[in-house]
Measured scan of single mutants.
Amino acid sequence: KKYKIKVYVKDKKTKKWKKIKEIEVDTKEEALEAIKKLPPNYEVKIVP
């Protein structure tokens, strides 16, 4: 079972969220580790 991490950042001009990358991992633990490495201003969604 794979997890997709969708990473969004808020556009300063439009104030809208835009997706900047998608990370695919195998476990939820890996997903949480990957999220920890991202800057705090990123919004993250984990999709099972």
Score class of each variant (00 low, 15 high):
Lys1Phe: 12
Lys1Cys: 12
Lys1Trp: 07
Lys1Glu: 10
Lys1Asn: 08
Lys1Ala: 11
Lys2Val: 07
Lys2Thr: 07
Lys2Gln: 07
Lys2Asp: 03
Lys2Pro: 06
Lys2Trp: 06
Lys2Met: 08
Lys2Phe: 08
Tyr3Ile: 12
Tyr3Glu: 00
Tyr3Met: 06
Tyr3Asn: 01
Tyr3Leu: 07
Tyr3Cys: 06
Tyr3Asp: 00
Tyr3Gln: 01
Tyr3Ala: 01
Lys4Leu: 15
Lys4Gln: 06
Lys4Trp: 08
Lys4Glu: 02
Ile5Pro: 00
Ile5Gln: 00
Ile5Leu: 13
Ile5Phe: 05
Ile5Tyr: 05
Ile5Gly: 00
Ile5Thr: 00
Ile5Met: 04
Ile5Ala: 01
Ile5Arg: 00
Lys6Arg: 09
Lys6Gln: 13
Lys6Ser: 12
Lys6Cys: 05
Lys6Thr: 13
Lys6Val: 15
Lys6Trp: 13
Val7Phe: 08
Val7Lys: 00
Val7Tyr: 05
Val7Ala: 03
Val7Gln: 00
Val7Asp: 00
Val7Gly: 00
Val7Leu: 05
Val7His: 00
Val7Trp: 04
Val7Ile: 12
Tyr8Val: 00
Tyr8Ile: 01
Tyr8Pro: 00
Val9Ser: 06
Val9Pro: 00
Val9Tyr: 11
Lys10Thr: 04
Lys10His: 09
Lys10Ile: 14
Lys10Asn: 04
Lys10Asp: 01
Lys10Ser: 03
Asp11Ala: 05
Asp11Thr: 06
Asp11Trp: 04
Asp11Val: 07
Asp11Met: 06
Asp11His: 09
Asp11Cys: 06
Lys12Asp: 10
Lys12Glu: 14
Lys12Arg: 08
Lys12Trp: 10
Lys12Ser: 10
Lys12Asn: 11
Lys12Ala: 13
Lys12Val: 11
Lys13Trp: 07
Lys13Glu: 10
Lys13Ala: 09
Lys13Ile: 12
Lys13Asp: 08
Lys13Phe: 09
Lys13Gln: 08
Thr14Phe: 04
Thr14Pro: 01
Thr14Val: 02
Thr14Cys: 04
Lys15Cys: 11
Lys15Asn: 12
Lys15Ala: 08
Lys15Phe: 04
Lys15Gly: 15
Lys15Met: 09
Lys16Asn: 05
Lys16Val: 05
Lys16Phe: 05
Lys16Tyr: 04
Lys16Gln: 07
Lys16His: 06
Lys16Ala: 06
Lys16Pro: 00
Trp17Gly: 01
Trp17Cys: 05
Trp17Val: 03
Trp17His: 02
Trp17Glu: 00
Lys18Leu: 11
Lys18Arg: 13
Lys18Val: 13
Lys18Met: 09
Lys18Pro: 00
Lys18Asn: 06
Lys18Thr: 12
Lys19Pro: 05
Lys19Val: 11
Lys19Gln: 12
Lys19Ala: 04
Lys19Leu: 15
Lys19Gly: 02
Lys19Asp: 01
Lys19Thr: 03
Ile20Asn: 01
Ile20Gln: 03
Ile20Leu: 09
Ile20Trp: 08
Ile20Arg: 03
Ile20Glu: 02
Ile20Phe: 06
Ile20Gly: 01
Lys21Ser: 11
Lys21His: 11
Lys21Asp: 12
Lys21Trp: 13
Lys21Val: 12
Lys21Tyr: 15
Glu22Arg: 00
Glu22Asn: 02
Glu22Ala: 02
Glu22Ser: 04
Glu22Pro: 00
Glu22Thr: 09
Glu22Met: 04
Ile23Asn: 01
Ile23Met: 11
Ile23Arg: 02
Ile23Lys: 02
Glu24Met: 13
Glu24Gln: 09
Glu24Cys: 13
Glu24Ile: 13
Glu24Pro: 05
Glu24Arg: 06
Glu24Asn: 09
Val25Thr: 06
Val25Gln: 01
Val25Glu: 01
Val25Lys: 03
Val25Trp: 03
Val25Leu: 04
Val25Asn: 00
Asp26Glu: 11
Asp26Phe: 09
Asp26Thr: 08
Asp26Leu: 09
Asp26Tyr: 09
Asp26Ala: 10
Asp26Met: 09
Asp26Asn: 12
Asp26Arg: 06
Thr27Lys: 02
Thr27Pro: 01
Thr27Cys: 04
Lys28Tyr: 15
Lys28Cys: 15
Lys28Val: 13
Lys28Ile: 14
Lys28Ser: 07
Lys28Glu: 08
Lys28Gln: 12
Glu29Asn: 07
Glu29Asp: 09
Glu29Thr: 07
Glu29Pro: 03
Glu29Arg: 10
Glu29Val: 07
Glu29Tyr: 07
Glu30Arg: 04
Glu30Thr: 03
Glu30Leu: 09
Glu30Lys: 07
Glu30Pro: 00
Glu30Asp: 08
Ala31Asn: 00
Ala31Tyr: 08
Ala31Pro: 00
Ala31Arg: 01
Ala31Asp: 00
Ala31Cys: 11
Ala31Gly: 04
Ala31Ile: 14
Leu32Pro: 00
Leu32Met: 12
Leu32Trp: 14
Leu32His: 08
Leu32Val: 08
Leu32Glu: 11
Leu32Asn: 06
Leu32Tyr: 14
Leu32Lys: 07
Leu32Asp: 09
Leu32Cys: 13
Glu33Gly: 05
Glu33Ser: 09
Glu33Trp: 02
Glu33Asn: 11
Ala34Arg: 10
Ala34Asn: 04
Ala34Asp: 01
Ala34Pro: 00
Ala34Phe: 15
Ala34Thr: 13
Ile35Trp: 04
Ile35Leu: 10
Ile35Asp: 00
Ile35Ser: 04
Ile35His: 02
Ile35Glu: 01
Lys36Phe: 04
Lys36Ile: 07
Lys36Ala: 14
Lys36Cys: 09
Lys37Gln: 12
Lys37Arg: 13
Lys37Tyr: 07
Lys37Phe: 05
Lys37Met: 12
Lys37His: 13
Leu38Tyr: 12
Leu38Val: 06
Leu38Asn: 02
Leu38Gly: 01
Leu38Ala: 03
Pro39Asn: 11
Pro39Arg: 11
Pro39Glu: 07
Pro39Phe: 14
Pro39Ser: 13
Pro39His: 07
Pro39Ala: 09
Pro39Ile: 10
Pro39Tyr: 10
Pro40Cys: 10
Pro40Gly: 12
Pro40His: 12
Pro40Val: 08
Pro40Met: 09
Pro40Leu: 09
Asn41Arg: 14
Asn41Ala: 08
Tyr42Glu: 03
Tyr42Phe: 11
Tyr42Ala: 11
Tyr42Leu: 11
Tyr42Thr: 07
Tyr42Val: 13
Tyr42Asn: 05
Tyr42Cys: 07
Tyr42Gly: 03
Tyr42His: 08
Glu43His: 15
Glu43Cys: 15
Glu43Tyr: 15
Glu43Phe: 15
Glu43Thr: 15
Glu43Met: 15
Val44Phe: 12
Val44Ala: 13
Val44Tyr: 13
Lys45Glu: 08
Lys45His: 14
Lys45Val: 15
Ile46Gly: 03
Ile46Asn: 01
Ile46Glu: 01
Ile46Thr: 03
Val47Cys: 10
Val47Lys: 05
Val47Ala: 05
Val47Leu: 09
Val47Tyr: 12
Val47Glu: 12
Val47His: 08
Pro48Ile: 15
Pro48Glu: 14
Pro48Arg: 14
Pro48Thr: 14
Pro48Trp: 09
